[in-house]
Simulated assay, not measured.
Amino acid sequence: LVYVSIEGKIAGGIEIHATIRPETKKVVSDLQSRGMDIYIVSGDNENPTRYLAHQLGLTDQSYYFGVLPQDKAKLIQSFQKNGKKICYIGDGINDGIALKQSNVSCSLSGATSIAIDTAQIILMNRDLTQLLELFDLAKNLQKNMDTNLLTTIYPGAISIGGVFLFHFGVITTELIFYLSLMSGVFNASLPQFQYGDSGRTKLKEIGSEQAN
């Protein structure tokens, strides 16, 4: 709040509050539809923080105000102790400790040097919709890795069980092994077919992971 005076007497005040990026409401709504809990953790006082939360459609239990930098990290730790995985997005000096404590940390191009140096991922276009692309890429990667694991475990179990229970011969066992190997290689190559050069370009646009 900035007070305005005329000839030494208070004539009024100007309230300054955070503005909301045009894409923020859509991003918050989309992330919530994926089952994610969204919180605002701010060092500002209660009124502007509550206003921001309500503008984004968040409840009174979804924002924290007047939080010091070290307390942001403690809050994240309390969530993590309850089994939550935290993705923290911050661009200020006060976000450095919280970014370091989080499981995944993101910042924006043009943010403070502390935030950029600490964050694992930088959104180069300063557009929060890139978060949705980031989560989509992560989900597809996890799905691909899970499938690769299954193509390794199941054929191996079938081969071992087949040898002892059904008396598989060497040729049958080797055939199962090579089919498993081929399916694993094909599955591991799927991201290249799905994204190709455009996928690498998208990753560069989203950001880069900082070396620890």
Rank of each mutant, 00 (worst) to 15 (best):
T49S: 07
F65R: 14
H54N: 14
Q70A: 10
L52N: 09
G83E: 01
A53S: 05
L99V: 11
R126G: 11
S78V: 02
G57D: 03
G92L: 08
K81Y: 12
L108H: 11
S113V: 13
S109M: 13
Q55I: 07
Q130P: 07
C87G: 13
K84Q: 08
P69E: 00
D71I: 00
D136C: 14
Q80G: 09
Q142E: 13
D136T: 15
I153W: 05
Y64C: 06
Q101P: 11
A98I: 01
A115F: 09
M145K: 12
L68V: 05
I89W: 08
Q77P: 11
M124L: 10
L134G: 05
C106L: 10
T112P: 02
L68W: 01
L75S: 04
L58W: 05
P48W: 12
M145Q: 14
D91G: 03
G92T: 03
P155H: 08
I116S: 01
Q80D: 05
Q142L: 13
Q61H: 15
K85T: 07
F79A: 09
G83N: 01
T129Q: 07
Q80N: 03
D71C: 03
I121L: 06
Q80F: 03
G96N: 14
C87D: 11
H54T: 12
Y154R: 13
K72L: 01
R126I: 13
